[in-house]
């Protein structure tokens, strides 16, 4: 649905060149919620703004649903933009217009007849649960309600994709959750492709199917959210995950002196459970099957979008061959096993 190829954006200021995007390539499938996470200044905002050409890339191309956006004439770009909805961190609603008139705005721009447009607005307000606030002005709404208006407005022209520029960053956690639920609902209902950027790993965890981690103007890691959580490859990803899930275990636990009989070893491992495997008693059957002890140092279970997901940090003690076979047993059953004791 969205194909970003070798996108580079360089800002020229008086004193220097700032590289905001450095050879970024991405592919977003139709109907998926794709997240881009990065710290402020990493380039994610520039990236999403290049998708609808609010920012003109220095090099590279963006193709949306087969249309090369980067080379369109102004007239064609405007009609292409009508099919790309966008929501913003600060909502960007017109204070001079009521909720109803804000949502009808894109239809006005597209030249949709008034009557038809009015009907569409009513549908949309119903969808976002704001039918009773149609005559209110934005200043009379809460942040969450404003973003709902923003979403209704972005959907007015039945876009092919929805771009979300930090849409929940100005909202409290509870409101954030309700907005994310609304986005998931819309994604589900209309099979609408959503590309969102955020600095909050929770947003990725709650909503996204796939994620790209952007750091210092480059994409450093892309993959299914589950995979990034269970097996992050870069320090940037690990630190984002660490912000919301405690993966690390205190050094004290790791550095316990090993007073062991000969022929017995102790390993500390981290096991990640994903989906179905989270429901099976694999650890206990491993202990029964092999001659070893397992001591649980830390555990955590969570949900990534709709999939159960958890970490368990274990200390295994036993004969080297038994421990090794035990680890194989776990991996063989689809668990992600990672040694964290640096042996």
């Amino acid at each position: 649905m969205i194909e970003v190829k070798n996108l580079t954006k360089i800002f020229n200021t008086v004193n220097q060149e700032i590289v905001a995007l450095d050879d970024v390539s991405l592919h977003v499938e139709k109907g998926e919620i794709f997240g881009i996470i990065g710290l402020s200044g990493a380039g994610k905002s520039t990236l999403i703004r290049c998708i609808n050409m609010l920012e003109k890339p220095t090099k590279g191309s963006v193709v949306i649903d087969g249309i090369e956006i980067t080379t369109l004439e102004p007239q064609d770009l405007r009609s292409a933009r009508q099919k790309i909805g966008m929501i913003f961190q600060h909502f960007n609603l017109l204070s001079s217009r009521t909720v109803f008139d804000n949502v009808i705005f894109p239809l006005e721009i597209a030249g949709v007849p008034k009557k038809e447009a009015g009907k569409r607005v009513e549908e949309l307000l119903d969808l976002v649960g704001l039918s009773d606030r149609a005559k209110s002005y934005p200043s009379q709404l809460s942040g969450g309600q404003k973003q709902r208006v923003g979403i209704a407005r972005a959907l007015a022209n039945s876009p092919k994709i929805l771009l979300s520029d930090e849409a929940t960053s100005a909202l409290d956690p509870q409101t954030t959750r309700s907005i994310l639920d609304l986005l998931k609902d819309i994604n589900h209902r209309y099979n609408l492709t959503i590309l969102l950027i955020t600095h909050d790993m929770n947003v990725i965890k709650e909503t996204c199917d796939r994620v790209a981690v952007i750091d210092d103007s480059r994409i450093v890691e892309v993959g299914r959210v589950i995979n990034i959580f269970s097996n992050p490859q870069t320090a940037t990803s690990r630190s984002f995950i660490g912000n919301i899930i405690n993966r690390e275990i205190s050094d004290q636990l790791l550095q316990r002196p090993a007073e062991q009989a000969s022929g017995i070893i102790t390993r500390v491992i981290r096991v990640s459970f994903i989906g179905e495997s989270a429901g099976k008693p694999l650890i206990s059957s491993m202990i029964k099957k092999f001659d070893m002890d397992a001591n649980i140092l830390y555990g955590n279970i969570d949900r990534i979008k709709d999939t159960p997901f958890g970490y368990l940090t274990l200390e295994l003690t036993g004969a080297p061959d038994q421990v090794a076979e035990g680890l194989d047993y776990l991996s063989g059953h689809g668990l992600e096993v990672e040694a964290i004791d640096n042996v």
Binding site: L54, L77, S79, R81, F88, L94, N157
Partner: peptide, 26 residues
Amino acid sequence: EWGLVEAALSMGANAWQVISKVLLPE
């Protein structure tokens, strides 16, 4: 706020629409 202009542009507004529907009323 520039964000309002950007929002209108992202919807496909032309210059005249930005002036008449965003800048002046706001």
